[in-house]
Amino acid sequence: MRIEGNHTLKGKPEKVWNTLTDPEILAKCLPGCEKLEKTEEDTYKATLNMGIGSIKGTYTGQVKLVDKQPYSSFKMIVEGKGGPGFVKGEGILNLQEQNDHTLITYQGDAQVGGTIASVGQRMIQASAKMIIGQFFTALDMLQEQQPPSSETSSGGAPSGSSSPPPNFFFKVTLRYLWNELKKILRIKN
C-alpha cells in the first residue's frame, strides 16, 4: 500500500527537525504509543495500542530513524506485530522551508498482514490515512502547547511524566476530525 501526503508545521525546518526526531515527542505523537524505549542510536522499542473505533490491537515492535540528512530528510521505519497481525511501514519525510513554516512531504509503503489484512481490506487504506493524520495533528497540538525545547535529552526514554496526558489523543483526534469535517462541509472559521 502506497502512502503519500504532506503536512505543514509551524517553524523553520531546524525546529521541525528537532521535533520530529525527538523520541519524547514521537512517543507523544505516535498514535497509541504506550512505550518508546531506546535500544540503540535512533532505534526505539515501541508498544503501540492502535486501532479505529472498537477495532483495536496492541503491537510491539520498533521505530527506527535512518538516512538522517539533518534538517532536510530522514526515513522512518515502523514495524509492529501483535494479535491482529503485523504492520510494517517505511517512509521518507522531506522538510522544506515555506515562509517560517515547514512543509513536510512524505511517501512510503505500508504492509499489513494477518487477520486485519484478510478481513479488513476495505478499511486499511483509510485507517492508515487516519493514523497519519492523527500523528500530525498531535504534532500541531504539541507545538501550540509547548514549543519543543532543544534541551530534551535525545537519549532519555520517555518517563511517566512525558507520556501523553489523559484524553490527549481523544482531543487530538477530535481536533483533527473537526478540521477534516470543516474541509468536507466547507465551513470557514
Partner: peptide, 14 residues
C-alpha cells in the same frame, strides 16, 4: 452530522 466524526469514530465519549 456532528455525531459522525471519522471512520468508525463518533462523538461518543467513552
Amino acid at each position: 452530522e456532528d455525531f459522525f466524526v471519522d471512520m468508525m469514530t463518533t462523538a461518543l465519549q467513552p
